[in-house]
Amino acid sequence: MVDMSSLFEGFKFKRKNTIIHNLDPRSKAIYLFITFASALIFVEPIPLLIILSTSIPLIVLAKSLREWSKSMRGLLLFIAFIFILNLLSTPVNRVNYAASMVLRFLALTSAFSVFFLTTTPDDFMAALEKLGLPKEYTLMFTMSIRFVPTLARDLQIIIDAQKSRGLELEKGNFIQRVKNYVPILIPLIIYEIRRSIMIAEALEARAFGASKKTTPYIVLKFSLWDYVFSAIVLLFFSLLISMKLLNMLPPWMNIKLPDF
């Protein structure tokens, strides 16, 4: 059984005072977006490995290597799944392709890890608002993150309450086991809907949405570091991507892994 809590460790914000944590969320968003795009553009293992390896120094600088490696270990099952599925479904260059897909997955998850480990949901929201996203949507996003622990607590209480009435989750065959969850999911869904209505009313009572233009809590500021960081990221990745698009990848980047 994969321990779900350790899986999320690498994607949960942890307050630390490092260069990466103090970067403007927008520069981190640039990094996230551009690694995301390039990881999807490349199918060759060497460039994907390069993309993946850009996030490692950032994680080290953010002093979050432990959280990241915990998450990666939690993802081992997915990684094995991706490798085997691609190995079986590819006609030629199977190992090469399967390994690339694993590297792509790792590059994507690591980039996400860099971003979410070091950016508070509030900063993230401020960045999205700066980009012109309506406040309704950004608030929805931060609240959904904010309420994950609350939801987990409610779920535990409901499981306890139903177990106290004799519910045995592990009883019966597969279909029965799925059915066993009905008395847990229904109260959970209804409870959360009721809660969200209450939150909506509380927000409205505090004049949410009263004016189009609101005073921001967090004023984002691009520092010198942000300019340097963003410039390096943009330069490096545009070079990498343009090489691919212009078919000018050096031969060593095109090396394919041999099949078994």
């Binding site: 209480i157 306890d160 309450a161 177990k163 106290s164 009435r165 004799g166 008395p183 209804i190």
Partner: peptide, 23 residues
């Protein structure tokens, strides 16, 4: 012993009814 075994003799009523009503 399991919770279900004990629950037969021990009834526990939780604080918030909304945490258990589903039918």
């Amino acid at each position: 012993v399991s919770v279900a075994q004990l629950a037969r003799k021990v009834g526990l009523v939780f604080q918030n009814p909304d945490h258990q009503l589903f039918a």
